[in-house]
């Protein structure tokens, strides 16, 4: 299996390290031509959603990536990645652009500034005690009926799935726990 990690900005190396631990090959997606590489899934990492959206546009990657996801290609977005995939952003910036492929509504910086960042441990899709890192994190305010809620913290939805799209408001790539990545990889394996 081979996973592409969007590497225009943010914590992409951390995702590659987790994939390496799981003996999964990965490559960095920095420009349009990288999207033609052979791969089985894409991870959109944490970082700044406004920056990544702008770079996807400037580098001509936005539409091809969007088409790929809409055709059913497996994608996993963490934090900023989740914001980029959301169809609706409650509080966007004036010129915010995103992929908008998943039927969820998200609030950016939902916990406030850096002083509001926190760690939590909770259940995720039946898996117990998943360590979660929230950095200036978003959460999901609304989901369409066919979106499966996978985890909640303090009454807010912080992980969900709709067909080929998996999103988490937290950063599984910042912990030693590889179970969330394994969950994504298992979905790809089952599909193939």
């Amino acid at each position: 299996m081979r996973i592409g990690v969007l590497a225009v900005q943010g914590a992409f190396i951390e995702h590659r390290h987790i994939l390496e631990k799981l003996d999964v090959e990965s490559l960095e997606l920095r420009q349009l031509s990288d999207l033609n590489e052979e791969m089985d899934g894409i991870i959109i990492p944490g970082g700044e959603s406004t920056v990544m959206g702008k770079l996807l546009n400037d580098l001509g990657m936005m539409e091809p990536l969007k088409a790929k996801i809409e055709s059913g290609f497996p994608v996993f977005g963490t934090c900023a990645g989740m914001i980029l995939l959301a169809k609706d952003i409650v509080n966007p910036t004036e010129k915010q652009v995103n992929l908008g492929t998943m039927d969820i509504s998200v609030r950016r910086n939902a916990y406030g500034r850096q002083l509001g960042s926190f760690h939590a441990v909770t259940e995720f899709a039946g898996m117990q005690e998943i360590p979660m890192t929230f950095i200036r994190a978003p959460y999901i305010e609304e989901t369409a009926p066919d979106v499966e809620v996978l985890a909640q913290v303090d009454g807010h939805v912080i992980a969900a799935r709709q067909d080929n799209q998996l999103v988490t408001a937290f950063h599984p790539e910042l912990t030693e726990d590889t179970r969330i990545h394994e969950y994504f990889l298992k979905y790809i394996a089952n599909k193939q």
Binding site: Q9, A11, E14, Q114, S117, H119, T133, I135
Partner: peptide
């Protein structure tokens, strides 16, 4: 320690940026 870790982690999110 936890706060320090979160603070280092915010910097990780800024990587590759200006």
């Amino acid at each position: 320690n936890e706060r320090y870790t979160l603070n280092k982690e915010l910097a990780q999110m800024l990587k590759g940026g200006v």
